[in-house]
Simulated assay, not measured.
Amino acid sequence: MFDELRDSLRHLSSRLDPDERRRMSGGMRDAMVHAKLAIQDLRTALTTTEARLRTEQAELETVRRRQGLAAQIDDQETVAIAERFAAQHAERVAVLEAKRMVQQQELDLAEREYESMSADLKRIMSGFAPEASSPDAAARREVEALLSDDPLAAVDGAELPPAPRRSRAEREADAEARLADLKRQFGK
Rank of each mutant, 00 (worst) to 15 (best):
F2Q: 09
L5Q: 09
L5C: 04
R6N: 11
S8T: 02
L12F: 06
D19Q: 08
R22D: 14
S25V: 03
S25F: 02
G26H: 13
H34Y: 01
H34L: 11
K36D: 15
I39N: 13
T44R: 12
T44A: 13
T47D: 15
T48M: 08
E56D: 09
Q57D: 11
A58E: 13
T62Y: 07
R64I: 06
A70S: 12
I73E: 15
Q76K: 14
Q76L: 12
I81W: 12
F85Y: 13
F85V: 00
Q88M: 09
A90M: 05
V95T: 08
L96W: 00
Q103L: 14
Q103E: 14
Q103T: 02
Q104C: 02
Q104N: 09
A110G: 05
E111L: 04
R112F: 08
Y114N: 05
A119K: 13
F128M: 09
E131A: 07
S134I: 11
P135E: 10
P135N: 05
D136C: 03
A138V: 02
R140W: 13
D149V: 05
D150W: 05
L152A: 14
A158H: 06
A158L: 07
E159G: 08
E172W: 00
A175P: 12
E176T: 02
L179M: 08
A180W: 12
D181W: 00
D181F: 00
R184D: 10
